[in-house]
Amino acid sequence: MSSLVTFLETALYMIFVQNLVFSGGYGSSEAIRMSAKPKRFVPFSIMITYFSTLTAFVCRLLDNIDAVDSLGLGFHTLIFGAVLVVIFIFTVLLCKILLSPNQKFYSTISIAALNTLVFAVPLINRQAGFSLIQSVGTGIGSGLSFIIALFLINTGLRRLENNTNIPPLFKGTPAVFLYVAMLSIAFAGLSGRSLFA
């Protein structure tokens, strides 16, 4: 029961209090670009959740080995990155055999796996000293935080596009950045300060 509470607590913390996209900037370019493609929200977010959770789980298990734990950040980067690449290749090969997907699927899964949000999760877990259950909670929370970010930014893109009163200098990307800045301010109200700087 306490494990479940710890897991839920960490997941909710990552979704709302420390939303990785708004409070840390992780995966922000993927979030802004993908928010213009609503049809891909759910599959993309599922993929991100899958990769971040599995990578966090495996990397946390590896960190339990003393020889690995004692290494510096540079070596940890190599190890965690290698884990992510192996998981990515394994998943793509599995999908190739089972699903026979089209080219769009490969581009989506590549972006979903190899981005700053997914790669940041095991690094953050190590920096914060999270346990195995907390690491899994972080992975799932990061995926859910990403889908919340997608929906909010998509709503913003719609409003900005229909808004004819925006000055010409700010039409397009400048207004989008300012809109995302407001979202970041709103979410910062829960955290106050970013912990994972």
Binding site: R159, N163, L178
Partner: peptide, 10 residues
């Protein structure tokens, strides 16, 4: 001002 002014600032 940058996000639409009085009428439509989000």
């Amino acid at each position: 001002l940058p996000l639409g002014g009085t009428q439509s600032a989000p």
